[in-house]
Nucleic acid binder design. Structure first.
Lengths: 88, 88
DNA sequence: CAGCTATTTTGCTGATTAGCAAAATAACGA
DNA sequence: TCGTTATTTTGCTAATCAGCAAAATAGCTG
């Protein structure tokens, strides 16, 4: 499982997550909204998937991605611990 | 100002922040706790400083680093927005 | 100023990353 | 099976990054 923070460090990947926050989208719909080649985006999808930040499911020839909110919340909790002085 | 998430993506830098959460430390004290060469750590301090995550001040020949909690909280708020559907 | 301590900057190498075009894979319908 | 659409994988290049040793800088003390 790739590090969640590494996955979040890319502006492109945060943009993908921001789009998915509104609703689940297919790879093609995401490609319509972000001006990068599809193979490039596909690589980003892989990073997000490995980090557990999104899940993918195929319907026929299209693949729909959705954000995995609980993993974002875990990252959030880790950051929150950096602001508090008590034991983790 | 370097991206906060890029700065947070390194485990070494998150470890530095975790140490600084307890109390402000000099560069040497951090080097005593993390098994990396001082020049390597100095590079990490620079990244954290550029991201605004820590501030440094020199007392004589020693430099003390302290965590800038408010910037960590800004990153936290950005992550929080990824989990909520309403407008930012 | 000379020597000492704390820390950074420089310069290098090897590893990782982001981007793309081209090729491959998967599913569908005629 | 052939062609079309959706998407990924492969293979490449240029750029960035992490680590270190050596050199440079900053401040202190005698």
């Amino acid at each position: 499982m790739r590090d969640v923070f590494t996955a979040l460090s890319s502006p492109v990947r945060r943009e993908i997550l921001a789009l998915l926050r509104e609703r689940a989208l297919t790879a093609g719909e995401i490609a319509d909204r972000i001006p990068l080649a599809k193979p490039t985006l596909s690589g980003h999808f892989n990073v997000l998937k490995q980090a557990g930040l999104v899940s993918a499911d195929r319907q026929g020839s299209t693949i729909t991605y959705r954000i995995n909110t609980s993993v974002v919340e875990d990252a959030l909790a880790a950051l929150l611990r950096l602001t508090r002085r008590e034991t983790e």
